[in-house]
Amino acid sequence: MIIDALLLQAGYNAALVSLGAALLGAAAGAAGAFLTLRRRALMSDAMAHATLPGIGLAFLAMVALGGDGRFLPGLMLGAGLTAAAGLWAVQRLSRQLAEDAATGAVLASFYGAGIVILTLIQGLGVGRPAGLETVLLGSTAGMLRADALVIGFGGAAVVAALWALRRPLAMVAFDPIHARLMGINPRQMDALLMALVLAVVLVGLNVTGLILIVALLVTPAVTARLWATTVSGTAGLSAALGAACGYGGAAISAAVPDLPTGPVIVLLAAGAFALTLVIRGHADG
């Protein structure tokens, strides 16, 4: 049965989910490679958690406009807006606090606000809120062709942008002062990278959910780094690992009833990392 799923023979929807998850994994792996090289991994976690209030608010806004509140691009827009606000808050607070403390504070407060808004929505009895909480841990069972297309195009766009920007991104991550002297604006590059990571987070809401997307951004990247000797090699291997985990995780969860997709994907990535540690743990560099 798992073999069927892996070979895309388990039905149209399962195949759709597997391909979508693979593309998400590739985009997350590539973006995560640059993110971890720039030492901003935790920032993506704060960003992901800060999407939650936006999802709730977007739902309410769409219901107020007469919809059922479940229009995916609308939810993603709301998620993107509060995630950007969370990112801004981290940067603003980092002037007074250590960056990790600022990140933790923003992560918790935005997430708390999101949970409150979602709970209120359940009690309001408006729109069609059932299943809105699946953005927390992801749910691919009900993935539509349109959703898969959003993931596919979004993921491909992220990968293409990272490919184009790979040199300045690597230079800023390695030696920001030198990058600046070579005419690159490090703040601009950081903002572009964060925008690309945000795109991955939004695309991933449907697959791994906002809590686990950070694992898909970070785990393949740190695994790849233990094997690769160049930035392009790290990003490429990380993307391949992410794609394999996304694909495999989606196939396994399609084949085994009640197994959630996001956590299975993340466990596969963690398994690859553990295996790498065993093999490469004693090799230096």
Binding site: L37, A164, L165, R167, P168, A170, M171, A173, F174, D175, H178, M182, G183, I184, R225, A228, T229, T230, V231, G233, T234, G285
Partner: peptide, 20 residues
């Protein structure tokens, strides 16, 4: 520990000539 080889570091000095 950055994944970069010696030649890649030197090539970073060519960035103004190679461009984006």
């Amino acid at each position: 520990s950055f994944p970069v080889r010696v030649i890649d570091v030197v090539l970073m000095g060519c960035y103004r000539q190679t461009g984006l």
